[in-house]
């Protein structure tokens, strides 16, 4: 699952909502926790702010820094896994979330990339993102999620 310039994945979903509501859904910890498989973000929501994901059992899952914070448009996070040693060893990734109105919907593009090729980290998040994004879509469009949480191995 790699490309010539390292490993990356691109996820796209169209959600019937507004850029403002989607932005709020991406950056409000209480809301994020409802669709992000039980994970809760804690961050200083501005460019240069510290960012982390807290697992349902209280451990810190991932840490990083917000490198772009453009409300209703673009959120980019320099991101490293913390709770799985082999993933942490692979170092930093870059996750970019772009919000763009398309007709009556909003297009959300999530790109998660690493400079190194064939990383386990990108493989691991590639299983999670589709679940998180379809939960998010379903929560914004219908008010409920399909998968409330999952197991987080040590």
């Amino acid at each position: 699952m790699t490309d010539a310039n390292g490993s990356s994945f691109v996820y796209v979903t169209y959600i019937r909502t507004t850029p403002e509501r989607l932005w709020s859904a991406l950056t409000s910890p209480d809301f994020v926790q409802q669709y992000w498989l039980g994970v809760r973000p804690e961050a200083e929501w501005k460019t240069g702010g510290a960012w982390k994901l807290v697992l349902p059992d209280g451990r810190v899952g991932d840490t990083g820094e917000i490198v772009a914070f453009e409300p209703t448009k673009r959120l980019a996070i320099r991101w490293r896994n913390e709770f799985m040693p082999e993933l942490k060893a692979e170092g930093w990734s870059l996750c970019t979330m772009e919000v763009e109105p398309v007709g009556e919907a909003v297009k959300l593009t999530v790109t998660h990339a690493m400079e190194r090729e064939g990383t386990k980290f990108i493989g691991a998040v590639s299983a999670g993102w589709p679940q998180v994004l379809s939960n998010l879509k379903s929560l914004l469009e219908t008010g409920s999620v399909v998968l409330p949480s999952r197991e987080y191995r040590p």
Binding site: D3, S8, F9, V10, Y11, V12, T13, S126, W129, P130, Q131, L133, S134, K137, S138, V146
Partner: peptide
């Protein structure tokens, strides 16, 4: 121009 498989669409169908 690089092409990526988008597993989200398949997930949405399954759900």
């Amino acid at each position: 121009k690089r092409h990526f498989i988008n597993p989200v669409a398949i997930r949405e169908i399954a759900e």
